[in-house]
């Protein structure tokens, strides 16, 4: 007991020691495993391979990046990947907003936590299970086809739209949660004040609710955007022949590791740019 007390006392008097004990392990993790592997990735992107044996040749060259920017397929895939990530983000935002508005402000207060749990439930199921479920839904003669048949339509089948749809389903909770929180914390007084000054519901929504919740939409979009940009399994399962960055990385990893590394830096750079853009909206402070 007294040893414990003495240790506690010594720690209390030495804030720096306290802090270093607290942070050493996580900082090592961050520096060695995370930043370390990122820099290995970046460095290896400047190596090449022996085209005959597929052995990595550690000779400095910018060939991979040169190829990335000049070969049309690569450019197309990069643009397509960013497009998918943006489409998923927009769809998530459009679906999440009314949902979050209901769970945060319309539903009875005692039901709200339950509704939030219901929105989070899909996250408890395995990623693969959900994607294969969508594969079943979208397959020929599957649920989507069956439901659209009476209207003379058919499901989207496997391809780019199917990938966007599935990714939207997968990442939707990450968009609903921050918007729900923002709407829940929106002071009711501000809505009263707006109405008091003569504003109808639509005006109050445009001038008060939306501007105040927008940073949280941006915060949610950081999740949906980066998760979509890094995904390659969904598109393999429901995307038909569609290729995204992740697929190119995956297919290059055996034969041309440096090219895979060069491709892998693309989403990192894109997300850094995206984060910088989102920082301007105040999204990072509402995460």
């Amino acid at each position: 007991m007294s040893l414990l007390n003495r240790t506690a006392g010594a720690l209390y008097r030495r804030p720096r020691l306290r802090l270093s004990l607290l942070l050493t392990a996580p900082l090592l993790w961050l520096a060695v495993l995370y930043l370390g592997s990122l820099s290995v990735l970046f460095v290896s992107a400047f190596w090449t391979t022996d085209s005959f044996t597929s052995e990595v040749v550690k000779v400095w060259s910018t060939d991979n990046f040169h190829e990335l920017f000049t070969v049309p397929v690569y450019r197309q895939v990069v643009l397509r990947s960013i497009g998918v990530a943006l489409a998923v983000t927009v769809l998530c935002a459009v679906i999440a907003f009314p949902l979050a508005f209901y769970t945060a402000r319309v539903a009875r207060p005692k039901w709200r936590p339950l509704l939030v749990v219901a929105i989070l439930t899909p996250l408890w199921a395995s990623y693969l299970v959900k994607v294969y479920a969508w594969r079943l839904i979208l397959s020929q003669g599957g649920l989507a086809d069956w439901m659209l048949k009476p209207f003379g339509l058919s499901g989207p089948g496997f391809g780019l739209p199917a990938a966007v749809l599935t990714l939207t389903y997968l990442w939707l909770p990450y968009m609903v949660l921050p918007i729900h929180t923002a709407l829940e914390q929106l002071p009711a007084n501000l809505l009263d004040a707006s109405a008091d000054l003569g504003a109808r519901a639509g005006r109050t929504f445009r001038s008060v609710v939306l501007p105040m919740v927008l940073p949280s939409v941006a915060a949610g979009s950081i999740f949906t955007f980066s998760l979509s940009l890094g995904d390659y399994i969904t598109v393999q399962i429901v995307g038909g022949k569609t290729q995204l960055i992740g697929n190119l990385v995956y297919s290059n990893i055996e034969l041309n590791l440096p090219m895979a590394a060069a491709l892998g830096t693309v989403p990192v750079v894109v997300i850094v740019v995206y984060l910088l853009a989102m920082r301007r909206t105040g999204a990072l402070s509402s995460l």
Binding site: L190, L197, M212
Partner: peptide
């Protein structure tokens, strides 16, 4: 509704729009 009344309110915590 409040927006149909010729009445304005000064709120206890002011309720100014922060944005």
């Amino acid at each position: 509704a409040p927006f149909e009344r010729d009445v304005h309110t000064v709120f206890q915590d002011y309720a100014l729009f922060p944005h």
